[in-house]
């Protein structure tokens, strides 16, 4: 009873947070703001799918949560490195040496 109520409150709060992150993603003035908004959206998706797994009483969705968190981290690292260095996986250092 209390847990269902708390699940409703937490789901609404996380959905609202995802909406605010989407707003920042839309009007972020720089690329880094947009990457940060995407990272926060991924974390909000983690929270939402976790709440759904709690509501449906299944452990299957937590594996999906693990995959979402992993993909979000890899995507954030790749985008940030691409912005910072112009290259995701640094190659050509050996060839570039004179």
């Amino acid at each position: 009873m209390i847990i269902e109520w708390a699940l409703h409150v937490a789901t609404v709060a996380v959905a609202l947070a995802a909406l605010l992150c989407a707003l920042r993603l839309w009007r972020g003035p720089s690329v880094a703001d947009r990457i940060l908004a995407l990272d926060t959206l991924t974390i909000n998706a983690v929270a939402l799918v976790g709440l759904l797994g709690l509501r449906w009483q299944t452990a299957l969705l937590f594996e999906a949560v693990l995959i979402i968190a992993l993909l979000g981290f890899v995507a954030t690292v790749a985008l940030a490195r691409f912005v910072a260095r112009g290259d995701v996986i640094e190659q050509g250092h050996e060839q570039g040496q004179p």
């Binding site: 409150v9 947070a17 909406l19 992150c21 909000n44």
Partner: peptide, 14 residues
Amino acid sequence: TGGLFTLVGAIGLL
């Protein structure tokens, strides 16, 4: 608490 902290983080982001 978790839901509200997520919301606070998004408000700060915005």
